[in-house]
Design a protein around this nucleic acid. Sequence first.
RNA 1: GGGCCCAUAGCUCAGCUGGUUAGAGCACCACGUUUACACCGUGGGGGUCGGGAGUUCAAGUCUCUCUGGGCCCACCA
Length: 897
Amino acid sequence: MSQHREPSHLRPTVPERPSLDGLEDKWDRAWSEQGTYTFELGRPRDQVFSIDTPPPTVSGSLHVGHVFSYTHTDIVARFQRMLGKDVFYPMGWDDNGLPTERRVQNYYGVRCEPSLPYDPDFQPPQEGGEGKSAKAAHQVPVSRRNFVELCERLSTEDEKQFEALWRHLGLSIDWTQTYQTIDQHSRATSQLAFLRNLARGEAYQQLAPTLWDVTFRTAVAQAELVDRDQPGAYHRIGFERAATVDAPTDDAVGSPHADTAGQRVHIETTRPELLPACVALVAHPDDERYQDLFGSHVIVPLFGTEVPVVAHRLAAPDKGSGIAMVCTFGDLTDVVWWREMHLPTRAILGWDGRILPEPPMGLDSPEGQANYKQLAGLTIFSARQRVVELLRAAGDLEGEPQPITHPVKFFEKGERPLEIIPTRQWYLTNGGTDEELRAQLLARGDELTWFPDFMRVRYQNWVEGLNSDWLISRQRFFGVPFPIWYPVDQFGHPVYDRPIVPPEDRLPVDPASDTPAGYKPEQRGKPGGFIGDPDVMDTWATSSLTPQIATHWRDDQSLYESTFPMDLRPQAQDIIRTWLFATVVRADLEQHSLPFYNAAISGFILDPDRKKMSKSKGNVVTPMGLLVEHGSDAVRYWAASARLGTDAAFEPGQMKVGRRLAIKLLNASRFALSFLAEDGDAPAASPAAALGLDPELVTEPLDRSMLAALREVVEVATEALAAYDHTRALEATETFFWTFCDDYIELVKARAHGAGGPQGARSAQTALGLALSALLRLFAPFQPFATEEVWSWWHQDGDSIHRQPWPVPAELGAADRTDPAVLAVAGGVLGALRKAKSEAKVSMRTEIIAATVAVPPDLTAAAVAAKADIMAAGRAAELTLAASDTDTIELVTAELA
RNA sequence: GGGCCCAUAGCUCAGCUGGUUAGAGCACCACGUUUACACCGUGGGGGUCGGGAGUUCAAGUCUCUCUGGGCCCACCA
């Protein structure tokens, strides 16, 4: 070792054995200290590239899918920065909402009880609980303020871990630009946008049937629904016709002619417990079986209510018996029937999903009330069993229930089926009830550039299918409160249609503790006083404003003007209908523009069974473990190998390839730099070494050909990255790089050492330097750590590679000075010589006494141009280039030493 | 019921507007201690491009159809 080149002959900082270990921490620290990714502000809008980073839900854990998609965005950010843009790349934390509440409940073993007073000395009973859903009975009740404090405390801890992961991954985020969706600024922005919506009539309050989750005891929005197949059963129930026609003397039950005789009509239902909520029967207007029933009344079994039989086109003759009972409310179709036919309301379900204690209006008969008493307070499940028992006893249940499996609507985060309960809620217009707005929002979808383009269709489908406005109020605790109070009238009732709003400069407000202007705190809840709106906004109602929050629409005009509308919204495909659409709605209403120009949609990560990776499958690998095991550049390489919009397999093999590439970058660079350093007046010694190399010094055809090929790579990679096609850019760069290592470096090794004289050496050294410089910058967005490490060996001025200019073809010399085929042909001939040695099972070092290689005639000149380099690399004393009669390069003879 | 995406080597994927003999990496086999790299290098084997039909001088690529996956929306008596 010591008889060879001393380390001091290399650039002083080039390590003897380069390694990837520790690069993440080393460079994260350096970038942080140097402010490498700091947004500068002050440049015109067209020199800024702004990114609407998705704020991850901090209450959930990050998984490989996050690492995957955030890497895609970081590649864009780094590319744009090297193109010379001032990149605005903030990070938000979505800590607002139900997931945080649920996590806090489990972690600290508490639950929110708004009626309790605040306890400033409260200590949670536990820390670090991760139980799936601890029983509510074991959770300590705490005040709303205590609960919110715990939410904030845990979120802050979670956010630190998230930041550590993102830094380790090498995301080039400006860590001075962060926000939380629950912080003061986000609250104020969210409240301000809401007040503007309210002032323009886009936000409104309505008492209406609402999709309701009985576990979380809150309303949910259309966008949060999912269908799940559930077991159920059809119950065939007989309704007696009301006594407006001749009453038959014989008992109709069991009679084969019961239906046709008009005495009894049978419906089939999966929700027998809703019988007391029945307000009508409905059949299709053209259904011949029920023509004589329309307009008449029937009696609800057990409960004695008299309800009309009505006709409506939505009734399906082929479902069940073709006639259905309308309840308030069993499903969304019930709501339509109820609304369109002005049926009465007989709600029987409370917020907790239990049967209300008092029977609804119209349930007047003594037997009906007695039966109802048996249901009061029961859960839906128990009530159903009870009703079936009662029906059976009364002889109103025909046959046995027929088990079926059917889709039932759930809140996507919920565990029990949704119910529909009439409640007062806030809505925001979103085109669901307004054709003009809908058309306008569809036009916004067309205006937006989608990567890949077919994702546009998902937006269109969603907007076209909307059937209601956006329900934004939630009966929860940890969220942005509605900035609204109501006057309380002399009878103690809130006057909902005269909301009191705060001035914009007072935001954010908490109406639960703040007092509106003109009132005193002690007037809260008193007749003649005021009361705060108790609800919080849906988390999407705030995260739909991430562009406005991040760019400080509310309070920093110069930042806002230089970053909004943003350039890029990266996000996952499954939240196009929620986050993306909602963001478009808010910007359309407030700014009359798109919130961002481009949307880049990442795919999912699939496990080896081709299923979407999820926690429940037990196959989730922790992202930090992955980064530590393979190295961040390696994991990034795997992510970068997958196109936008395409689901990708979780493939450690691909990470190994990425790691190999990173190591190769270190080693090949070390080698190439050793030539630059050896030269007496090494160009590498100059601070601007990379760009100071003069392509005019590259005189050898092989060297020129290599640079010509690299020029093309630069063109392809630049074009691909500009079109968000990072895989294409990476592939082109990588393919070239391996040829560069395997063939070019081998071919010029001897010449670069001086074997061909000073001019040939200079040509090779310069070409190596030029190529290495361009290659490192081409790889920098993909492998930020390895490339930065190499750059630091070379450039001692401390400038990060990540702020260098993106390579351009011109820096590699003129395009038309040489035969571009020389490198490929020389590689082919060298390959033929290697094959001879491989087939002879001898070392590559073995001397070739004489060899003949056949080369297609049109490539002979190119081969001749590199003949000396080929002979040196192949250790051939004599090489004959014969004319091939095929168009491939073939070994003809080889005499080995 | 409507819509979108996908199907190419054992595996993961390229293959752009149709144009020689369909590519890469991993895995596999053989060889090689070559001072850039054993977290390596060199060479090699391996595919009738899911099935069928059509358009064309020419189809992995375009059209239709079938099959099999994945996803979204609608329906929910």
